[in-house]
């Protein structure tokens, strides 16, 4: 464990900040010297002012909370279903021949192509949004789980038989732990997809609901570019936090792997 953490702790990665800093400097200069139409390309300090204002509004936090709630419930449903279906297809040849072809065909359809159908049936409420989010988390989780489950070795399966594991013990003590690296990879991807879908759903299934996507949408209708940009930043920040949490969870759950193999 000590090895793995020292290896993975990054020194302050200042190189990564060069580009954003240069961009903001250019942006600031361009608006300051009126190289651009400042009604379209608003000055960065305007975004900061809007941000400070928004961050003091209870409605902003209510919106973030709404979005997160939709995101996480959709993700939970999609992830559970994804692990279940991925395991089923991976473990059972019958299920593979029954479900496999349908699954692999359906996943060729762009997720956003489902939206009109979903809203026709379920309207534009939370139900439609959560299902859409669940769908988008579902595919990467199935694929990750499938890959992991198929990777369980015959050698380990024989150990399970020798110690007379029941079907449930085989899943819980062999299949899922062995597939954990790929399942977690799928879950991490699913988490990102779910967040993209959350924002997408709030843009495309527009109702009078509240959410972080609605903030951006409101900004657009009011031609408030500062608000749009603040919304983008907020969305990006949540995404980064999710990814960071996923990385930490993975490192913790997969601590049994040899460090050099990461």
């Amino acid at each position: 464990m000590p090895n793995t953490t020292t290896n993975n702790t990054p020194r302050f990665a200042w190189r990564g900040w060069v580009l954003p800093t240069a961009f903001i400097a250019l942006w600031f200069t361009a608006t300051q010297l009126h190289w651009v139409n400042t009604r379209l390309i608003v000055p960065p300090q305007g975004v900061v002012t809007t941000a400070i204002h928004e961050l003091q509004q209870a409605s902003f936090y209510a919106g973030v909370a709404q979005s997160l709630w939709r995101d996480l419930s959709g993700f939970a449903i999609g992830a559970l279903a994804g692990v279940a279906v991925g395991t089923l297809i991976g473990v059972s040849r019958l299920a593979d021949t029954l479900i496999g072809p349908t699954f692999h065909t359906l996943r060729q359809i762009s997720l956003f192509a489902w939206l009109p159908l979903l809203s026709a049936i379920l309207g534009t409420g939370d139900g439609a949004k959560v299902i859409f989010i669940a769908f988008s988390a579902f595919y990467p989780v199935v694929l990750g789980t499938l890959e992991g489950v198929k990777g369980v070795t015959q050698a380990h399966a024989e150990v399970a038989r020798v110690y007379r594991f029941t079907a449930w013990q085989t899943l819980r003590r062999l299949v899922w732990p062995a597939a954990a690296p790929q399942i977690l990879g799928g879950l991490r991807l699913g988490l990102i997809y779910a967040w993209l879908a959350t924002i997408g759903a709030e843009f495309l299934l527009v109702n009078d609901g509240h959410g972080i996507g609605n903030i951006v949408f409101k900004g657009r209708s009011a031609f408030n570019v500062e608000l749009i940009l603040f919304g983008l930043l907020a969305i990006g920040t949540v995404g980064v936090v999710f990814n960071r949490l996923a990385t930490l969870a993975e490192a913790r759950l997969l601590h049994w792997r040899a460090p050099q193999r990461r």
Partner: peptide, 19 residues
């Protein structure tokens, strides 16, 4: 050896007693 890499020595040995 066919040990389960996600289990430590104790847990691997205990697999024999699971049932």
């Amino acid at each position: 050896h066919r040990l389960f890499p996600w289990l430590n020595v104790e847990q691997n040995v205990a697999l024999g007693l699971l049932n």
